[in-house]
Design a protein around this nucleic acid. Structure first.
Length: 480
RNA sequence: GGCGGUGUAGCUCAGUUGGUUAGAGCAGUGGAAUCAUAAUCCACGUGUCCGGGGUUCGAGUCCCUGCACCGCUACCA
């Protein structure tokens, strides 16, 4: 077992501002990375932006910017999300960067020659959209967007010979050498592969791509298809080109290589990507964790509905810690979940203010009055079921285990009645009781780190060894 | 159409290989307590476990069937 780990998010398109959906993924991946560090692994945590897309070319044109200008500007919105959500990424990769470009070309060049071939691609093309439509999408051969007749266009593209990887992929997944979580998504992938794999296009004409993208090595008329290049980010960020120490440490010799992705891009990560890696003789990821989508007050989040919420506005409103708590605890990691302010409000008051926040306050007050000084403590053991939950990406269950500790402490307070001990002058008994309480809060303060690093830190400093307890501000003031 | 999944208390969901009075959290009602952010603690659920058949001594849990919703079904980060 190596003591390193690699964790990544998917890289979003930058043609629009980030919304809560991506914040959800960032926070989950961050919890994974922070957890791995907490148990002693040196974790490389990667996120970034996908910029070589025709969508970006178009979005830029609409705004009268160059594609580069649009990408530079919008990438900042995504970067701003990271400190805002307290994300502990170690690297941020932009696919329009020089490092990525070189790396993606290197990946292409290393691909087995027999796995890449040139083939005619034909389809229905809309000049207005500069895009192809399938016959299903195009009613009566007309563009669904422009309602104009589509042209039949033929083009030569490079294809990847995915068809020759069926058996190897099945073996990889069935053996769980690449573990897909949850099982329902694993089944989806397996049945997709069993249905037979077709080769897929990995390039397009430079012209059709709007002269934007990564040139195919040795063919100036072709750029890489955005999917091929986007997937490469995981390795280009590790300095694939230079065969670096990073690559060795966090991929080649690392036994935890985790991708966190949304359900819509399962196939790309569990079929195409491992096949590409096999062709270049690099190891596949060891785990792919697939999360669901968020809805907003029960509705799909979309621009047209006008219910796109900016995660940073939420953070401003409720604080990072509360936003992270809600996303990780109140929403299933695997199923679609609903983000509603009324539920947020309820969960905030019940769990954060009333339970944990009030508990910490009670102990602080009692401790301060008693003039208590916490003793040094060893790293506390995690509650029952916590590690198992984390291994399976059941963040909500791991947190439930932590909150059960808080509930127990509240119950103990009622039973022992420390205020009575104080009145009766039973100092020793009170001190023993306070040590018990502080030990309990120490468990929470330590193991809460992956989810709510700020709160974990505050809890730890509240009851720091050798420092007399002094009441501070409440952790989570109740919401009205 | 094909393959797969879901449907359990007002809400969000747990329910191992079928086994006693079906559970948790939140919300609600009543009480206790006063260290605390009117927070906490205790007590309280007559739920057609989607409908209908069936297997079984016994089914939320297995089989068949009907209904509703969802996912995948090839180039959408």
């Amino acid at each position: 077992m190596s003591n390193t780990a690699f964790v990544s998010t998917a890289i979003p398109y930058v043609n629009a501002k980030p919304h809560v959906g991506f914040a959800f993924e960032l926070v989950q991946a961050d919890a994974v990375a922070r957890y791995l560090r907490l148990i002693g692994r040196d974790c490389f945590f990667l996120t970034g932006t996908d910029e070589n897309s025709l969508k970006n070319v178009r979005a830029a044109a609409e705004e009268g910017l160059t594609t580069r200008e649009l990408c530079d500007r919008n990438t900042e919105f995504f970067k701003a999300l990271l400190p805002g959500l307290n994300i502990s990424n170690t690297e941020f990769i932009r696919t329009s960067s020089e490092l990525h470009t070189r790396g993606a070309q290197e990946l292409w060049s290393r691909t087995k020659p027999e796995d890449i071939y040139k083939k005619h691609y034909s389809g229905l093309y809309c000049v207005g959209c500069e895009d192809f439509y399938s016959e299903k999408e195009a009613e009566d051969g007309k563009c669904p967007e422009h309602k104009t007749p589509l042209e039949h266009v033929e083009e030569e593209n490079y294809f990847f010979r995915l068809s020759s990887y069926e058996e190897k992929l099945l073996e990889l997944i069935e053996s769980d050498r690449m573990r897909i979580v949850p099982a329902s998504k694993r089944n989806e992938t397996l049945s997709f592969i069993r249905g037979g794999l077709l080769d897929f296009s990995i390039s397009r004409s430079r012209k059709r791509a709007g002269d934007w993208g990564i040139p195919v090595p040795g063919d100036a008329d072709q750029v890489m298809y955005v999917w091929y290049d986007a997937l490469a980010n995981y390795l280009t960020a590790l300095e694939l080109t230079d065969n670096s120490e990073r690559l060795k440490k966090y991929w080649l010799e690392c036994d935890k290589r985790i991708h966190c992705i949304g359900k819509g891009i399962n196939r790309f990560h569990t079929v195409y990507w491992p096949a590409i890696l096999m062709s270049v003789e690099l190891p596949a990821p060891t785990e792919v964790f697939i999360h669901g989508y968020l809805t907003m007050n029960g509705q799909k989040i979309s621009k047209s509905l006008g219910n796109v919420i900016d995660p940073l506005v939420q953070v401003e409103h409720f604080g990072v810690e509360a936003v992270r708590y809600f996303l990780l605890r109140a929403i299933s990691p695997f199923e679609d979940g609903d983000y509603s302010e009324s539920r947020f409000h309820d969960v905030f008051n019940a769990d954060l203010a009333n339970n944990l926040g009030n508990l910490a306050r009670r102990i602080e007050t009692i401790g301060e009055k008693a003039g208590h000084v916490p003793k040094p403590a060893a790293t506390p053991e995690a509650p029952e079921g916590y590690h198992e939950a984390m291994e399976d990406y059941r963040f909500h269950d791991a947190m439930a285990a932590l909150w059960a500790v808080a509930t127990n402490l509240n119950q103990r307070i009622e039973k022992v009645k420390p205020w009575a001990l104080q009145k009766e002058g039973k100092k020793d008994e009170l001190a023993v009781f306070l040590d018990e309480m502080i030990a309990g809060l120490g468990i929470i303060g330590h193991w809460l780190t992956p989810f709510m690093p700020g709160t974990a830190e505050r809890l730890q400093s509240m009851f720091k060894e050798g420092k007399a307890i002094k009441r501070g501000d409440p952790l989570f003031p109740r919401l009205k």
